[in-house]
Design a protein around this nucleic acid. Sequence first.
DNA 1: GCTGAAAATGTAAGTGCTTACATTATTGGG
DNA 2: CCCAATAATGTAAGCACTTACATTTTCAGC
Lengths: 328, 328
Amino acid sequence: MDATIYDVSRLSGVSTATVSRTFSDPGRVREATRRKVFEAAEILHYSPNAIARAMARQRTDKIAFLICKKDATILDEFYARICESIMRRAIQSDRQLVISTAADWAQAASTAQNKQVEGVILGGSAQADMVSEFQSKNIAVVLVNHRMPGFDLPCVVSDEYGGMCLAVEHLLRRGHRSIAMIAGRLSPYIAGERYNAFLRVMREHGIEAGAGHIGMCDPTVESAASAARELLSRENRPTAILGGNDVIAAGVLKAALRLGLRVPEDLAVVGFDDSTICGMVEPELTSVHIDCRRIGELGVDCLHALLNGEECPPVTVVPAALRVRRSS
Amino acid sequence: MDATIYDVSRLSGVSTATVSRTFSDPGRVREATRRKVFEAAEILHYSPNAIARAMARQRTDKIAFLICKKDATILDEFYARICESIMRRAIQSDRQLVISTAADWAQAASTAQNKQVEGVILGGSAQADMVSEFQSKNIAVVLVNHRMPGFDLPCVVSDEYGGMCLAVEHLLRRGHRSIAMIAGRLSPYIAGERYNAFLRVMREHGIEAGAGHIGMCDPTVESAASAARELLSRENRPTAILGGNDVIAAGVLKAALRLGLRVPEDLAVVGFDDSTICGMVEPELTSVHIDCRRIGELGVDCLHALLNGEECPPVTVVPAALRVRRSS
DNA sequence: GCTGAAAATGTAAGTGCTTACATTATTGGG
DNA sequence: CCCAATAATGTAAGCACTTACATTTTCAGC
């Protein structure tokens, strides 16, 4: 049905090899020949068949972005941003991108196994067996927003620790002494970093933060709101609350408003991720900005390097920044 | 490097044809043979090479979801939801999914041309030349959340018109007479449907809605807020405002709160899309729920039908529903 | 105009699977 | 126990490219 390289070869009067070269390495054929070939191709509506090319070349130039369902989806703005950025960068690097959710991890793995994918970027907390499966299939793996000690995988993460430090220091500078934190059920790695940073900065300033300063909730506004209500109805309630992410912070805001507290006068609220939510709520949320774009780009770059046998730093940390808004 | 069908053939003592059948149509080989083959495959870590299979079969079982950048991204929760759903359904239908943004429309097209993709689902307002290009390449096209009169393409859309009717009727029932609408720069099709529905229902109730009842803004909270401020500072300000989507509604909410208006007592606000924003803001937003999940599923099903040469309804309308919350 | 190196092109053997067609094995009646 | 139908398997020709290697052209320098 579609024209093949043979058709073009015949019409243009050159060999199939030359046609092939004309398309994959135009510099190697003489100007005049090239023109003849393109002309014939035009007439026949020919365009190279990527499948056949992949077959002959033994490479697909295809990479995948896998999001682990447990703590992440494309529905999370956070991962959506990373995804966007990966898409863009993949295109720049002349690679096709396949996106998949780990729900179909089996499928993802088989896609990969079937040699359709040369490397994968794993977002969210990947599982060990996944990773080793990929490795055994000789598929390059890069971790994004996650780390797996023990596995020798390049990873690019945001500076969760530093980000949290910024947030806490900001609140301390504003005079807050009684600061609480409400953690959602984020991935262990992320949660750990933030938690440790919180504790350390507090301690550095001579404040011992105990269990009374830590709330826990599901990653929904309502759950966060009730956790906040709980914290805020205690004897000496905190004057500032750090949300594990912006959704949680929004929940805190809600709880505060319902309790008649003014934000930021009576209670300062700080979120994490700097998602669009921050601008939606009233007052706007101060939040720790994560450079998702950069994370995605660097993820692709790492994979690219790996696939080209180049060096690639084992850990890349993308700096976080604090976006101060009206809620603090 | 990887084991091929030949290796398995040799080790198991059957022909390559039988090995092939064992994997692609196990029912056609005898139990005993099948076992032998699987055993050999296990030992050799063999798994079929999808590229080669695609080459031989002349089909890839691959479809694409293309989002048109102009008025949509994966960053829009709306499209993210559709995307998720398409992913899921594609997997169920044993099809691989490629996702792409129309920014790289050229690339998307070439991917498709190269015969890697048998059909595409176009999200957002597709362009005519795109579509005809696909059609000329004999690639099946399904439109999602959009319609293109003149092109004979199956499309699945949400009942924008009906959804808006629900919203307006709800407000009228609540006693509102002076209802305004703030439209963002949505795609012409969507905006049109909603606008017409608004006007019709108003007129049906004997209210002539003129330019004074229509605001326009960019699709950002701030822009929406200032548009709302403008409407609300007029002589006889509206008692209810319909946002073109939830972001806009959130902006309206902000403007109202800043002007000291109570919601819903002084002003009712209704959004569109029923995104997570609705739950984030205070008070929670009443919004028209769009069944993104269903849209995605039906999109895939349509494409599936098309590819199998089956019948497929030219237009599928997914009903919308009103989620009443505290803001109205 | 001749020569040899470099550039351009051609030849043909893969790449790993599917499948039409040919061949062989199985089996239920008679 | 044989036969024909049917099931199971085998043979080998694609599928549309790439590329190592062989051959031919080109052309600068003499």
